[in-house]
Write a protein that binds this DNA or RNA. Structure first.
Length: 123
DNA sequence: AACTTGACGAGGG
DNA sequence: CCCCTCGCCAAGT
């Protein structure tokens, strides 16, 4: 099966992203780690392409260095960064934010198996 | 089918 | 802290 073409595959990523609180962020690798099997930081990044149209707060997902890496694509880095700044996330002059301060972990879900995922969607 | 290019990340120098 | 290499895996050419 082709992960990126599988709706359920993408939904797992979005399900997590939708839960990131305002003013907090998660990294691609972190999400891949939580989902486990079949997910890698790269595929999570790829799935985020379509996030804009899926109604998820895509701006809250950044790279492991605390920077926005949208620059090479259609979305300008400054847009993502300014959206986050509007939520209260502070960046230094080099465009990096303090992950130890803003990184968010969904409570109790350091790693998800199938059973946990079904619970994850419910409040 | 080969080859390049990413919204990535860890590790070494 | 910056730069490079390598592993990763899907897409575009």
């Amino acid at each position: 099966m082709n992960p990126a073409n599988d709706k359920a595959y993408r939904e797992r990523v979005y399900e997590i992203v939708r839960r990131i609180p305002r003013g907090r962020v998660m990294t691609y690798g972190q999400i891949a780690g939580i989902l486990g099997e079949g997910y890698t930081p790269r595929t999570v990044g790829y799935v985020m392409h379509a996030a804009e149209t899926e109604g998820v707060p895509w701006q809250r997902v950044i790279n492991s260095q605390g920077k926005c890496s949208t620059g090479r694509m259609t979305i300008p880095v400054n847009l993502q960064q300014s959206m986050l700044e509007q939520e209260g996330v502070e960046f230094d002059a080099r465009g990096k934010c303090d992950l130890s301060k803003y990184e968010w972990w969904p409570e109790g879900f350091e790693r998800l198996n199938d059973e946990q995922f079904s619970l994850f969607g419910q409040e």
